[in-house]
Simulated assay, not measured.
Amino acid sequence: MVKPSVIIVREQDELVAACCVPFDGEFLQQIGKMDLYLKERAVIHNTGELYQQLSKEFGENLSLDIVDPRNKGYLFPRIIKDVVRYKLSLWQAIKTIFTLRVPAVILNGQLLASGKGKISTETFELIKRSINRTNI
């Protein structure tokens, strides 16, 4: 039996890099008392929570991956592999690849959530129902 696959696509913690060193705006927070990356940090936290929930709920019974969208050399072949493995239609594959916006959640090659700042609990429940339905 093939394990279900979930790919969470989100920016990694190093939001901007300057000369190979992460630039997170910390010095501007100290000087200007403003957080330049508040929205991005919320997305990172939210997707991390989804990862932890899925990991806790399904453990080794789920292929779970967090991918930075800038890593196209890994992301797109991984999506195509899932599309072939789960026998999705060409239309569904095209939809997954070309409508993907960060943050995104992909279940078995199908795009479940894309481009919303916060991944909802409904997305987790949808994944859970789908996995439980296929394991019955």
Rank of each mutant, 00 (worst) to 15 (best):
Met1Leu: 06
Val2Gln: 12
Lys3Phe: 01
Lys3Glu: 00
Lys3Thr: 02
Ser5Asn: 11
Val6Ile: 01
Arg10His: 10
Glu11Gln: 12
Asp13Thr: 00
Glu14Thr: 05
Glu14Trp: 10
Ala17Ile: 13
Cys19Arg: 13
Cys20Phe: 08
Val21Tyr: 02
Phe23Asn: 09
Asp24Thr: 12
Gly25Phe: 02
Glu26Thr: 11
Glu26Ser: 11
Phe27Ile: 15
Leu28Cys: 11
Gln29Arg: 12
Ile31Val: 15
Lys33Phe: 08
Lys33Glu: 12
Leu36Gly: 09
Tyr37Thr: 09
Glu40Ile: 00
Glu40Gln: 15
Ala42Ile: 05
Val43Thr: 13
His45Arg: 15
Asn46Tyr: 11
Leu54Val: 07
Leu54Thr: 02
Lys56Tyr: 06
Phe58Pro: 11
Gly59Arg: 07
Gly59Val: 02
Ser63Thr: 12
Ile66Trp: 01
Arg70Glu: 14
Asn71Phe: 05
Asn71Ile: 02
Phe76Tyr: 15
Arg78Gly: 01
Ile80Asp: 07
Lys81Ile: 02
Val83Gln: 10
Lys87Phe: 01
Leu90Thr: 11
Ala93His: 09
Ile94His: 05
Leu107Arg: 03
Asn108Ala: 01
Leu112Arg: 10
Ala113Lys: 10
Ala113Tyr: 04
Gly115Arg: 06
Glu122Thr: 13
Leu126Tyr: 03
Arg129Asp: 11
Ile131Met: 05
Thr134Lys: 13
